[in-house]
Amino acid sequence: MTDIWVAAVVVLVALIVLTMVRLIAGPTVPDRVVALDAINTLTVAAMILLAVIYEQIIFVDVAIVYALLSFVGTLFIAKYIGGELGQ
């Protein structure tokens, strides 16, 4: 049964690497933010699955905090791109 979870995490990591192509290629800054946001979502999913593999609930707590903090990060990058910081 553990094999299924491990396989799922491996697929997720492969998807994260694929998304990094868009993160590096761009071409504009908002494109990179979209790719970063997708990577954050996939990382949260991978953390939740890792909690099952290692049987450590603390992984899910870290995933919750990671989701909320990455949201704050996305909001501030968005504000910066839109030119709304420091006014």
Binding site: T28, V29, P30, V33, V34, D37, T41, V44, I48, V60, A63, I64, A67, L68, S70, F71, T74, L75, I77, A78, K79, Y80, I81, G82, G83, E84
Partner: peptide, 23 residues
Amino acid sequence: ALIALAFTNATGAHAIARAAHRS
């Protein structure tokens, strides 16, 4: 975690779209 993710993703997408349009 599921609820936090769904809610923050929607709001974050809105923020990125607005910022892209403003830029």
